[in-house]
Design a protein around this nucleic acid. Structure first.
Lengths: 336, 336
DNA sequence: TTGCGAAATGACAACGTTGTCATTTCGTTA
DNA sequence: TAACGAAATGACAACGTTGTCATTTCGCAA
């Protein structure tokens, strides 16, 4: 019979009901083997009967830890889902839950501010997901008792960081072009303030310069297809343009559409590579070769780094998760 | 000068440093007006000096609440980002943080299981994001001390639910066709097990039936463009097909591409409507009319419902967030 | 049966807050 | 100056756990 439940059932209530001491109930939960089976059964029965559930606050207070990792989303965009997925799965696997807060649109949150808010919450360590520059990035110091990992392509003086290797991915795409006989690569960027866009551009530039090629003026986009289309119209008129690297798949698609509308063929006249490998979801028979980042893996690494840091708080590391070039047929081999 | 910090700074340490009692420090934090300004300043200085930060566990233990809302993601897909965004912003606004756990891929999690896990965590109430059927949906009873809101299109016997009005959105799209002289509407579905797809199909069907139209056999898709393309090839051969409702924009785009490849024009020969209004991101000059759901709003409502339920725990409500038809030019008015 | 070591259990303090109620201090008026 | 009520502060218990250490019970050999 379900009991008339008063407010909250404590261990003490269970102990009384089972005719044992408080401590024995505690043991049944935390070190069941140290309790005689008959006693254990009695306690379990009482817990069931009363609907006992351990009190998180009391437990954490005593233990001095929470079993939660804080996640601060400075930026919550499409790719973030996979990352959260990775963080959450890794957390689960290691017995942690997540505590999450978010920068609100418009609000300007510093790292210090984020750390301050987090340190009032039940967390043993924290992850900052930071995709844009923030004022106090270089001066920020994490609380010594709260291992902090920042997901960002920038290097931080004191905190561990984790990032996908966007620069490397862009370089890889460029080299893919160059190795196939292309003499130059044009670039369509994302929004100016985006660190992803900046890194991809940097990788593109460095790959060209490494071969002694002067990078052409990059075309400014905004991540959406229309800006890619506009860029494509411009590029279609450049006779030396045989290869275009767009900072994401949507813009790459815009570029391809513009080229087609100008009577040019991809890849016969112009080759194109994008980023994020998501065009196939939207475009049937997609031919776009694309650099894909493993956001899930990124999340997993970030969480593991925090958990590792719980034991060696002063450690500091920098993790880069490499991208993968998903080959389709949007790049022509000019050497053939 | 920054202090050599020992383990953790407690209120007592601050009290000693400031030469006041423990309780006064507590008051400075919780009811500053009841403390003389000079005292307050001294305490603040001591807090600063020692780097004091209130202990969450102790505070929660005493107060009997956490200031956190639990979020269980049974499903973490693209649209979820906006929803989380809404939940997080609303939480922030009302002074709550979020505690999140996630069903792992492959794992089969019941509502009871989710509730059990959540009740071990620091949460005052919880939100289940449930986009597929789950075994114990009808029999589940939420813990009485943990207000539970389920985000799902299904009605629940005891818990409050929040959902976008997917059925209504589909009906709206159908009527949009019918009101413009179309005699019938074909439907391309998403994955079979998806509740969204089921609801959208139900709305489509009911709208047709309400006008005495026998719904044609729906075409089975899988959310991606290729399945839409396949459906489009089939539809292109049906002479009576003047209107297609696709369960998302990606498939709608696939349909449109197939129609084009078959020499048909959208909207001149066939009209198309999609869902989610995201094609414009990927397709330049997109003309697709689409039903958009306000996921952010959905999240906000869900969170507000939980918080409201914290005071009236037994309340139960059902909230539907209506969709919006974003009009472009993919639908032809046959009456014209 | 006695004795003994190991296993099982219990009593009590402590974690760091906030609520209750008592005490001190202050400003004001008689 | 004394007396008073209000404002400011303090002492102490309590929230529900777990750690420490003491005590009881058990199984087994002498």
């Amino acid at each position: 019979m379900a009991t008339m439940d008063k407010k909250n059932v404590s261990m003490n209530d269970v102990a009384v009901a089972a005719g044992v001491s408080l401590k024995t109930v505690s043991r049944v939960i935390n070190e069941p083997d140290s309790v005689r089976e008959s006693t254990r059964d009695r306690v379990h029965a009482a817990m069931e009967e009363l609907g006992f559930r351990a009190n998180f606050a009391a437990r954490s207070l005593k233990l001095g830890r929470y079993g939660c990792i804080g996640v601060v989303m400075f930026h919550l965009s499409g790719g973030a889902v996979d990352m959260i997925d990775g963080i959450a799965d890794a957390a689960e696997e290691r017995g942690f839950a997540l505590t999450m807060i978010k920068k609100r649109a418009g609000e300007k949150m510093t790292l210090a501010e984020a750390a301050r808010r987090m340190s009032q919450l039940p967390v043993d360590g924290m992850i900052f997901n930071l995709r844009q520059m923030v004022d106090d990035f270089d001066t920020f110091e994490a609380p010594k008792d709260l291992k902090t990992v920042i997901i960002t392509p920038m290097e931080h003086p004191t905190c561990s960081t984790v990032s996908d290797d966007q620069e490397g991915g862009a370089r890889m795409a460029c080299e893919y072009f160059l190795n196939r006989g292309h003499k130059n690569v044009y670039f369509v960027s994302g929004k100016k303030e985006s660190l992803s866009s900046q890194c991809r551009m940097k990788g593109w530039r460095s790959a060209l310069e490494a071969r002694g090629i002067e990078p052409p003026e990059p075309l400014q986009g905004d991540w959406n297809a229309d800006s890619g289309y506009a860029a494509g119209l411009v590029l279609a008129d450049k006779p030396d343009c045989t290869a275009v690297l767009a900072a994401n798949d949507c813009m790459a698609n815009g570029v391809m559409m513009a080229l087609r509308d100008k009577g040019l063929s991809v890849p016969d006249d112009v080759s194109v590579i994008g980023f994020d490998d998501e065009l196939y979801k939207t475009m049937p028979n997609s031919i776009l070769t694309s650099v894909k980042f493993r956001h899930r893996e990124l999340g997993i690494r970030a969480l593991n780094e925090v958990v590792a840091g719980l034991e060696a708080p002063s450690s500091r590391s920098r993790t880069l998760v490499s991208g993968v070039l998903v080959e389709r047929s949007s790049v022509k081999d000019l050497r053939a």
